[in-house]
């Protein structure tokens, strides 16, 4: 059996009284892309955010269950969320570059984690920008404001920023849904590249995108996983009727 790089066991998420995730267990294999699909409001973002304890920042959210990474259950009170979030990076739907230069956006995370050496930082910045296929577009203006980049470039910068702290897993919540087709294609290409080094979990509403980039797909419905299988299987021959209805657009 292959060792899993990230395992969620029986996750429940409550917002106050309301249960948004009702017992989800998923394994994410190393160097694979897993797509989370499902209708709006079914809890994909909520689940994704519980994987790196991002729901801690929401006052009334309560997450129970186990999340295992590197042989450690990170969904426990005593866990150092700083170290954990270094291991599990995140990218959002709307690009959220800091109001700083391109260089500083990338150097930001490594600085937190104690890297002060200028040469080392230079190296990390170049490396991450190359990996995000952004180096050629930005190498002449590393010290200009990141806000001057286009939306697609900003998103790739946010991806570059997240890999600068050397995570094992990258969580992406609809990373391309605010982008134009060309930028979307670039981001998808980038995901396929990054998959060689990282475990990627991506939420998407775009069925074609899920089919193109992912190895496995989980179909969420009303806070539960209805079906989780290899992507080809889900898209060609799903076992559940609900999955079939959803991916063929016959839903609701």
């Amino acid at each position: 059996m292959e060792t899993q790089s990230l395992t969620a066991k029986n996750i429940h998420v409550h917002y106050g009284e309301k249960e948004a995730i009702k017992g989800v267990s998923l394994d994410f294999a190393p160097r694979e892309v897993t797509a989370l699909i499902g209708p709006s409001g079914c809890g994909k973002s909520t689940f994704l955010r519980s994987l790196n304890r991002m729901n801690d920042t929401i006052d009334n959210a309560r997450v129970t269950g186990e999340i295992w990474i590197d042989g450690e259950n990170i969904n426990e009170p005593g866990v150092d969320v700083v170290l954990l979030r270094q291991k599990i990076g995140m990218v959002w739907q709307r690009p959220n570059p800091f109001h700083k230069s391109i260089y500083e956006n990338i150097a930001f995370g490594p600085r937190y984690h104690g890297i002060k050496n200028k040469k080392q930082l230079d190296h990390i910045v170049e490396d991450c920008l190359r990996k995000a296929a952004l180096w050629d577009e930005t190498k002449d203006r590393l010290h200009n404001s990141a806000l001057a980049l286009s939306g697609g470039q900003q998103q790739r910068l946010c991806i570059a920023r997240s890999i600068a702290v050397k995570p094992k897993v990258i969580l992406m919540d609809e990373p391309a849904s605010a982008l134009d087709p060309v930028s979307t294609a670039k981001v998808e290409e980038l995901i396929s590249e990054l998959k060689q080094d990282y475990t990627i979990v991506i939420v998407t509403h775009n069925m074609h995108q899920a089919a193109r980039v992912s190895d496995k797909t989980a179909f969420f419905y009303m806070g539960k996983v209805v079906e989780y299988d290899r992507t080809e299987k889900i898209f060609t021959n799903p076992s559940e009727k609900a999955t079939d209805d959803y991916i063929s657009g016959r839903f609701g």
């Binding site: 790196n52 991002m54 700083v82 979030r85 990076g89 995140m90 959220n96 937190y112």
Partner: peptide
């Protein structure tokens, strides 16, 4: 201030 910026920082492991 947009919540996204703070989340971006938290997600990088900032306190």
């Amino acid at each position: 201030l947009s919540a996204g910026l703070k989340e971006g920082s938290y997600a990088l492991g900032a306190t």
